[in-house]
């Protein structure tokens, strides 16, 4: 019990909150980036453009089948070979965006594929162009089906930022490690506290998705 009281001193909590801020900021940028990039990749892969689509498909297949930890390593330790030296924050954002966009591309692609092909044909028969039919008819329906999977993916993204601890991103997980590095009896209190902090952030996101889900159906 004494461990818990000592571990939860304001100085330590304050330090954890600084880490939480980094986690949230890095996640937000990566979510926006990977959503945009992922939608483009997913649509390109679905639409089947010559040469481009197979190349995009190959890229998606390789990246999404590797552990994120490795992608982070490659970004942080591999990019300097090309003359770039990103800070750990930018390396993480880049790695997360590239990795998560391939996951999102798959969700978008299968979401579009799950929409009844009759919808597209009907829209085309009514004189809409392919692009119009896609934008006004198919995508909104696909979107509805995709929301749970997308939110799951975003929640994974937030928690996965903890892996960037390995390249010393000063995020929530890293700062918890620093705190229990001062005193190893703090390890359990710290793990419980960051569990609660991650839970609050991620649960807020899933509540948001539930209300979206309800509004759309």
């Amino acid at each position: 019990m004494k461990d818990f009281i000592n571990a939860y001193s304001w100085i330590n909590i304050h330090y954890l909150l600084q880490g939480l801020w980094i986690t949230v900021a890095v996640s937000l940028v990566s979510i926006v980036g990977s959503y945009v990039l992922g939608s483009i990749l997913g649509i390109v892969r679905y639409v089947n453009i010559k040469v481009i689509s197979p190349v995009v498909g190959l890229f998606i297949d390789i990246i999404r089948n590797l552990p994120l930890l490795l992608i982070i390593f490659f970004t942080y330790f591999g990019l300097p070979n090309l003359g770039l030296r990103p800070s750990s924050v930018w390396a993480t954002i880049l790695a997360m965006t590239v990795f998560e966009s391939t996951m999102i591309a798959e969700i978008v692609r299968s979401g579009i594929a799950a929409v009844d092909p009759g919808q597209m044909e009907g829209a085309r028969a009514n004189g809409l162009s392919y692009g119009q039919a896609m934008y006004h008819i198919v995508l909104p329906q696909a979107m509805k089906k995709m929301i749970p999977a997308l939110v799951s993916q975003f929640i994974s993204l937030i928690k996965d930022t903890s892996l960037a601890t390995i390249i010393v991103l000063p995020d929530l997980m890293h700062n918890a490690q620093i705190v229990y590095g001062q005193n190893s009896t703090y390890i359990l209190p710290m793990f419980l506290m960051i569990a609660v902090m991650y839970f609050i952030v991620c649960y807020a996101l899933s509540l948001l998705s539930r209300s979206l889900d309800r509004r759309m159906s």
Binding site: L58, P80, N81, G83
Partner: peptide, 21 residues
């Protein structure tokens, strides 16, 4: 072809090591 291309990709990533810094 996927496996071969992925190997090629990683080789390129490591091989083009400029030793500037």
């Amino acid at each position: 072809s996927v496996i071969i291309s992925s190997l090629a990709l990683v080789l390129v990533l490591t091989a083009c090591g400029s030793k500037s810094l």
